[in-house]
Nucleic acid binder design. Structure first.
Lengths: 188, 188
DNA sequence: GTCTATAGCTTGATAGAC
DNA sequence: GTCTATCAAGCTATAGAC
């Protein structure tokens, strides 16, 4: 065929890249069209609900990735510190060594529906919960575990902002290196 | 007069609020017009260069604020730890206790000119330099001081992202409380 | 399933009255 | 210095051919 169907997996990945990089308002259909190679009308065939449905699919896609690559591995049996080392590697991949922004950051800017912002908040809550879980497993009390989880995600988000502004990935790598001690003690 | 001139100080402050909150692409002239009470044509009278000149003025305005309220106080004589406690209070005001976003975050999204992104990078570099300076004054070596500065700004940026997503300012307040130990040792 | 063409609205920007 | 009125370009979204 001249225009073979683009697989759903490839499509949503490319759409997600645009929303992650540009945020909701910056992710215009023209840019999404350019990034995916599909014309706008074709995008509406795949996402009849338009931009709202696209960004919802992006959030679901990212949630699924975190479930499979981060949350589930953390719930498996094994030494907490080693599991955190493992998922730190997954996060390096997800953020392309710090060169890609976090959707929680870019999609939390004011643009988009209230449902979008609730979904984004839900994603962050799930992430906090997963990190709190592994900190508890390491022996931290409830409050201490929650604090470690918040601290770890704060440093991930902050280092990604620095990386974007400076065009320098070193702060992100340093944070990933420190992730095991951030979550599983050895901090104080 | 029916329409008295809005003072430059008031105007730029309101314009800055919009750009900080919405980012470059989200800060449409309609929203700026609504926030300032000036029609679009009046905005062009004040900023003949249009949106580009507006955002440049915002960056200058923020730079000036940081110079006066953060960098200069850090350069004055006094105990480093006490100076950091002082500027932490200024930062709480600037970020409205964590409820306002950082312009470095929102304005570093892809929208806007290359000059804008270079200016934003310059602002962050100046901030890093000021924080590195006070860490050195506290006795840290060059590399250690720079690391403390990066770490402090990472945690500020990260806690502001969490605050925006969750609508919860506690992580930001915790970071402000920890700022003295982050910059002036007592960390390890 | 993809495309071209188009509708209606919003955007950044300008002209000209007061 | 502010306003109303307007423009061309970009936006989201839809209709209909292949």
């Amino acid at each position: 065929m001249a225009h073979p169907k683009l697989s759903n997996e490839d499509l949503i990945g490319k759409v997600a890249d645009v929303f992650r990089r540009e945020g909701y308002e910056g992710a215009s259909l023209s840019r999404i069209s350019e990034a995916t190679g599909l014309e706008k009308a074709s995008l509406y065939h795949r996402f009849p609900g338009g931009k709202n449905e696209m960004v919802a699919a992006v959030v679901n896609h990212v949630n699924q990735w975190f479930q499979d690559q981060v949350f589930t591995p953390l719930e498996r049996s094994g030494k907490p510190t080693e599991k955190v080392r493992f998922i730190a590697q997954r996060l390096r991949e997800f953020y392309a060594d710090g060169s890609k922004s976090c959707a929680l950051d870019t999609l939390s800017l004011p643009g988009g529906s209230a449902a979008l912002h609730e979904a984004v908040r839900g994603s962050l809550t799930a992430w906090l919960q997963a990190f709190t879980g592994v900190a508890r497993e390491d022996g931290a009390s409830g409050a201490e575990a929650r604090e470690r989880a918040e601290q770890a995600i704060i440093e991930i988000q902050g280092s990604l902002v620095l990386a974007r502004v400076l065009g320098d990935c070193k702060p992100f790598h340093r944070t990933m290196d420190r992730l095991p001690e951030l979550l599983t003690g050895a901090r104080e």
